[in-house]
Amino acid sequence: MAQVIGLAVLNLVLIVGLAPLAEGVMRRIRAIVHSRKGPPLIQPYLDIMKLLAKEDLVPEAGMVWQIGPTLCLGAVLMAALLTPLGTPPPLAFAGDAIVFIYFVALAGVAIILGGFASGNPYAYVGASREMMMIFSVEPVVAIALVTAAVKAGSLSFPEMMESYAAAGPSVSMVFAGVAFLLALQAQVGKLPFDIAEADQEIMEGPFIERSGPGLALFKMASYAKMLIFGSILVQIFVPLPRSGLWPVDLVVNFALVGVLVVVVGLVNAVNPRLRIDQSMSYFSRIVVFVAVAGLVFASIGA
């Protein structure tokens, strides 16, 4: 029990604490690509602190509106508790890969319902797009994780990690990992897939009416997703040798996630935004050619 609580606190502190830093790195990369100097690395921390202190403007005094940001960050933190960070996931006894997928979807639910509740037509457009992005991306994530589950014969994250470390690299897992990597950009809402927010056309979409602490929570949730999905990619789809010492595994994990942050940041800096239909056809191709291919290889044992 003490171990579970200790691990849980560690996961939450690391995810909440490091997520804005990852965002800061991405902003700096964007600035470098643009030949700008860019903000300091700690700028996202300052943004969040500023937002937390600012006045909260409420267009609709409904319950759904009020609960939106809390539920969104809560669900993301819950997903963080199911995520292995080199250490075993603290809530491994309470949920497996499917539960993880659905808690991530629950964060999307909070964004969408919060958008609807604002009563702003731009929020409706954004929420509708957010739903379509979930349609496009979640199947890729689900197929990749199911591929890992088929290889391991189990849906729980620790079993998947152990089994992959024991069995060594395989064709199916490479396909699944590539599919997951290709979906990562959209999971964290970065260009070319920040279609739901699209600040230049629909003004942050579902967040258009948000200000102050509510907006801060949504931003924290969005930053945290980068670390969560990065860690899942590193832990489940990369056959890492385990040192046996958890601090070492933890550092290795975050070093590799850092590499992913740089990659995502670069892609974010050099791409224009896609339209929603383009992104849907892009992901349908990934589903068919990469993710399903991985699954087929896994079912024939490769």
């Binding site: 937390l52 006045e55 809560g74 819950m78 508790l81 009563g119 924290m220």
Partner: peptide, 23 residues
Amino acid sequence: CMAISYGIARMAQAPSRVVPVWY
């Protein structure tokens, strides 16, 4: 987790105000 999130949101005791929808 939601309680933690709510705690973070209320950390700075930000005031809130009802406004019309912004078009």
